[in-house]
Design a protein around this nucleic acid. Structure first.
Lengths: 193, 193
DNA sequence: ACTGTTTTTGAGCAGTTGATCCATTACTTT
DNA sequence: AAAGTAATGGATCAACTGCTCAAAAACAGT
């Protein structure tokens, strides 16, 4: 066999991810990556292909982290509680991510629509989110927690659009604490009265 | 006196704006600008200073256009009608801007937080928007159109976050028609019942 | 027509970009 | 220990970046 790699792929990927997250795609040079990842230029190309491939792997890794945190924040049994804790977790991410914001939204802002891979990646996530949220919303409607006069899918899109707005605001207003207030506002709206 | 400029500043600024809007800041090279604006490199530097100064002028010009369109879309006398037509206009912009999205949000995604000028520009707009919207909302509360139990400023932030989400979604899902549905959803929520 | 001032022009600067070449090193298996 | 294989390091590529220089051209006032 041959000489084994002297580094752990995930370890250096995390480092690359943070650089892309903080500085964007074009704003991150290969010199930056070499410095941050601590491995040689050629090793990057051998292992991850070109800059764009590396970026996509970082973006996907980022999203997995983000998704894990949102899901692990979900508490309770009622549809309302689960949706509320989900929106709270997103608000918390908006506050705690600070100036770096959401890497996925940053990437859309910078690279969409030219970069089809990024757009497609978002569209897949968007579809899954609508699916998952509207399921939860119709469950809440069926057991009488939520008003039943609105379309679950429309309500899901509403919550997603709001989440995107919250994440975006978190980036330009780091440390802002208003977001959970907005989240509560949006969930209260769905409730039956 | 001296030789006069052979071009109209606003005319070439509009052209530059469209390039920045479509390709982003880093994605637009000076060669691109020279080609699009139809004037010489040196004329750009003489007239507008460096690339970043030119960009900021384009960004401000963009926002003036956008603001004009939102305001001219406002119809009716009641607070509800005015807010609703405002949100509808934003939804319409999201649909009609196509893949280019909102230049201001694109710029935030690409350049915040490194570019303080862009961040500051947004923060000023954000402050003014909250001010203007929460005024309208409290007017609606006072004359009984809206529920009075919520904080006008919180509701304003809610609508702004939603608008940001809608504009972002418009970029990645060009031609989507769901946005006015989301807008109506948000306004209905404020109404007294 | 001349002068003074400014714009315009095209060439070209130094620095950076993503990517590649190739000799060297280091590991695994036999 | 030898052979085979793949990672590594450093130098370097051509292309492109934002920007500047100096000469030429074009206008306004006299």
């Amino acid at each position: 066999m041959a000489r084994p790699k002297a580094f752990d792929q995930d370890t250096v990927l995390v480092k690359a991810m943070h650089v892309f997250w903080a500085r964007g795609y074009a704003g991150t040079s290969l010199d930056d990556l070499v410095a941050a990842m601590g491995i040689n230029r050629q090793s990057i190309y051998n292992t991850f292909g070109d800059k764009h491939s590396l970026f996509m792997r970082c973006l996907k890794m980022y999203w997995q982290y983000e998704l894990d945190r949102v899901y692990e924040g979900i508490k309770g049994d009622k549809a309302e509680d689960r949706l509320r804790s989900m929106m709270h977790e997103i608000s918390h991410l908006a506050t705690s991510s600070g100036e770096m914001g959401c890497m996925l939204l940053n990437s859309l802002g910078e690279l969409a629509p030219q970069d089809q891979a990024v757009v497609d990646f978002y569209l897949k996530i968007d579809h899954e989110s609508i699916q998952s949220m509207s399921n939860r919303i119709s469950a809440g409607q069926e057991n009488g927690e939520f008003e039943s006069h609105f379309n679950p899918s429309a309500a899901a899109k509403f919550l997603i659009a709001l989440s995107i707005g919250i994440r975006t605001l978190g980036k330009v207003m780091p440390g802002n604490q208003d977001f959970s207030e907005i989240a509560d506002f949006a969930i209260d709206v769905l409730k039956k009265r």
